[in-house]
Simulated scan of single mutants.
Amino acid sequence: MLKGEKVMLRAIRPEDLERLWEFNNDLEVELFGGGGPPYPQSLARLKADFEREWAKGGRDGTNFGIEVDGKFIGHCALFEFDPVSRTCKLGISIGDKGYWDKGYGRDAVRVLVDYAFRLLNQRKVWLSVNGNNERAIRAYRGCGFQEEGRLRRQVWTNGQYVDLVQMGILREEWDRLKTG
């Protein structure tokens, strides 16, 4: 549906679920993804959740599978939309570690940010990232995100407390990046 230089963002399909289940149960992927502590997930539960949402019909919203050359490598989404301030939060996970550090995540973020500003009329896109995830922070900065705040030792991950970094990009900053 949405094409970047390296990736395509599209709806998550039933045939993606087994790989998504593998990603969701990979400790290294989960720890770098941030958020709460990693918990196991059964394939049956993932399929049941997917089928329940699918049965409602309608559109899939702003949750996308990330595809490279026909291969599902991760997922990304926009969520926590604020209709008054016109902001939303971005989340991404490249679950296939063979695609780490090759620019696929950056390309997916750029496509998703452009979608938020150009097609959804958002004013700002923001995200949270664990302060020890230097690779992700570099990638977000490379896409124009700026650090807006830091909650010190906020997140318990892998046996230690780490900072939670808040980052954001405004529409006018994105427009300057695209034209500059």
Results as ranks from 00 to 15, higher is better:
Trp100Gln: 06
Leu46Arg: 11
Val125Leu: 05
Ser93Ile: 14
Lys178Leu: 13
Val111Lys: 05
Lys102Asn: 03
Leu31Val: 07
Ala108Thr: 07
Gly70Cys: 04
Ser93Arg: 03
Asp101Met: 15
Glu30Ala: 08
Leu9Cys: 15
Arg19His: 09
Asn158Thr: 03
Ser42Gly: 01
Gly144Trp: 05
Val109Asn: 00
Trp54Ala: 03
Gly33Ser: 08
Glu30Pro: 06
Tyr140Met: 00
Asp107Cys: 09
Leu9Glu: 06
Gly103His: 07
Gly159Lys: 09
Gly95Ile: 01
Met8Leu: 15
Glu15His: 14
Tyr115Ser: 05
Gly57Ile: 02
Arg152Gln: 05
Asp16Val: 02
Gln166Ser: 11
Arg135His: 11
Pro83Asp: 05
Arg118Asn: 15
Glu22Arg: 06
Trp156Ala: 04
Trp126Asp: 07
Cys88Ile: 03
Lys178Gln: 10
Glu18Val: 01
Pro37Asp: 15
Pro37Tyr: 09
Ile169Leu: 05
Gly36Val: 09
Val165Ser: 06
Trp54Asn: 11
Lys178Arg: 09
Arg106Thr: 14
Asn132Trp: 11
Asn25Leu: 07
Gly142Glu: 08
Met1Lys: 14
Met8Val: 14
Gly33Lys: 13
Gly34Cys: 08
Glu28Cys: 14
Glu148Gln: 13
Ala55Asp: 08
Ser42Tyr: 00
Asp69Glu: 11
Gly70Val: 07
Glu147Asp: 04
Asp175Tyr: 12
Phe23Tyr: 13
Leu31Tyr: 07
Gln166Asp: 06
Glu147Ser: 04
Arg150Ala: 12
Glu147Arg: 05
Thr157Trp: 13
Val84Met: 15
Asn63Leu: 14
Val162Gly: 14
Gln41Cys: 10
Val125Tyr: 09
Arg45Gly: 14
Ile73Met: 00
Glu172Asp: 10
His75Gly: 14
